[in-house]
Amino acid sequence: MASANTALRTRDRVARAALYAVLILGLFAVAGPFVWMALSSIKPEREIRAVPPTWWPETATLGNYRDLFSGLDFPLYFFNSLLVATAVTAGNLLFCSLVGYALAKLRYPGKRVLFLAVLGMLMVPGMVTFVPQFVLVSNMGLANTYAGLILPFLVGAFGVFLMRQFLQSIPDELIEAARVDGAGEFRIFWRVVLPLCRPALATLGILTFLQSWNNFLWPLVVATTEDKYTLPVALALFSVGQNRIYYGPLLAGAVIVVLPVLVLFVVLQRHFLRGIATTGLK
């Protein structure tokens, strides 16, 4: 009996060690490139290209960042990215929760059609709408404007779906009670419903912000002059424009694109990952 127990415990210990080994190896493979990117962005080009490669910088320098900022107006691209992502996030939070509440809790003709259209939209690939959207935005005179970058993303089918699913779990009695108390419909929405939606709003907010920040193809096509570039567009065009690849400034640029969202993600990961998990189950 005792020997069987120790055998089991040894097997458990071996299993645990193997598990850790695999996970740490996996973590190195997934997160390692990001760490390497950050460390290499402060190495001189010569050291980045050294064979065998170095892990920790032998000579630390901010030269790559200096080169990057002298050639390109990165503060402006940063501002553009921030402006677009903030506007898109605010629009999605407000409009998607309004319509999500209506779809979940109010009775009105046409609501079924609207919801089916939203569901159908979830399956439409981006390339289907891409060309007409581009023609539309150009014809509206919005090419190369902030409005052109923001408007097509101000609402999203996924956001409506998420908010509606979440709002359905809120008890009707709360809303009825507010109605009996004589509160107006918008007041009910703003004061009673929205505060209850905080977890869903947090998920949708972070998700939308990340998506907008990382959005690439649309701003690449719509922003035609440098003053409207977002960070990913600027970095992509910067890397394409070179004859010989200089990894140093590129890595510095990559750090600047990735760092803000990584910080945001790590700080908010608890809310965020929980939210993702619940959307997947419904």
């Binding site: 990001f34 990340l210 990913p232 990894y247 590129l250 990559a254 750090v255 694109v257 969202v261």
Partner: peptide, 11 residues
């Protein structure tokens, strides 16, 4: 959560 452009630089 990372931009594909940055990932491309690294990869």
């Amino acid at each position: 959560v990372s931009s594909i452009v940055a990932i491309a630089v690294v990869w």
